[in-house]
Write a protein that binds this DNA or RNA. Sequence first.
DNA 1: AATATCCGCAACCGCTCCGAC
DNA 2: CGTCGGAGCGGTTGCGGATAT
Length: 329
Amino acid sequence: MGRPPCCDKSNVKRGLWTPEEDAKILAYVANHGTGNWTLVPKKAGLNRCGKSCRLRWTNYLRPDLKHDSFTPQEEELIINLHGAIGSRWSLIARRLPGRTDNDVKNYWNTKLRKKLMKMGIDPVTHKPVSQVLSDLGSISGFPNTTTTTTNPMAYVNKDLMMSNMAPTKTEPSGSNKSLVENTQEGQVHSYQVLTTENVQPHVFSEAASSTSSSSSSNLSHLGSPQSYSCQTPQAQTLVPHCSSFDWSEFLHTSDSFVWSLNPSSLVQTEADLFSINAKTSGHDKQGVASVDGCSGASMEYHSFVDGILDRDNELRAAFPELLDASFDY
DNA sequence: AATATCCGCAACCGCTCCGAC
DNA sequence: CGTCGGAGCGGTTGCGGATAT
């Protein structure tokens, strides 16, 4: 037995909102405030679903919303947060005053995801594409007796597969979901994320609420000595290895984590990113973390993207034969 | 100038969460 | 403790404008 619909879909207006409808919502909220949205259409004289009214208010009409374009700082923040917690748009949006989860989600899907891919960074795992593909190579050499993940392919971004792989393997649709469907509430899952080194298996716990393969993957990074990101010792202790974990709470209480990734050297443009890459590949390693962990105070000069690119350079140097030229970006 | 294609954004859908009863 | 229903969330769709051909 399914849930009854919140309203009679056939008798309510759908689609774009008119200025008159917006005015009615605004007037209603001004007089009555928000809450009990199912009653709003009737009371405000609108032929709309209450849910639709709520969305219109929260995503567009709220007076505290910003409607201008995202700043480079906001961009950086979104990337960092997405790398840390995956596609938890509402949590990310809470860190961006005046932005809604829908704003952030759309901006990610239309701009940032493509931007990262263009830079050779897999937007799902936040790893360099070459590393993801070489990881995939390792994984595809099954059987892997230590991996408890039911679907290793879930780590691989669909876009990445489409753009870089022969069409012989495709990510099963809803693979993210498959991880979740196999997850009982409160159950702890252990994963080994394979890397080319594959010498430092690490285990992490997945919060039961997690529905994102990207976050799963990145959670592993947070606790991993192989991490490309600039975790602080605090960060490692802040990410609890337990099944009941509230990311919202985490984000509110652990500014030192994400914000320590790159507090002083926000990457401004794609051109900057490439120039950074050029610098680091020129072995100007001042302030660059070692691969096997964070190297103290120098970390604060090392950006999130720097870490990714350094990691990639290191990988290429160590395993030139593994990286086919076609993987170049 | 006309048409096709691409892109961004607003809105919708279906699901889960959570509090009230 | 189970059910109900509102609220919230993430994924997806579709429209309309911009750009390319």
